[in-house]
Amino acid sequence: MGTESRERRIDHDEFDPIGTLALIGLYFVILVVMWVLMWQVEFLDGGPTVVG
């Protein structure tokens, strides 16, 4: 399938996966923000905890 609709051929050296970097950078930011929220809001602010 896919390959039929190829418009041009791009080899390794001429290919910079900038879209991938953008997506994965976004994922990184989401992970960090959600991580902090989960720990702070859900866990540490979340009522009694085991302390010993």
Binding site: F43, G46, G47, P48, T49, V50, V51, G52
Partner: peptide, 23 residues
């Protein structure tokens, strides 16, 4: 304990020891 972070397994043979502060 529902809605808190107090949560432990209870396993035969073992004694689970947890300390909790109820403020």
């Amino acid at each position: 304990i529902v809605g808190t972070n107090v949560n432990t397994m209870v396993i035969p043979g073992q004694i689970a020891e947890i300390t909790v502060e109820f403020d």
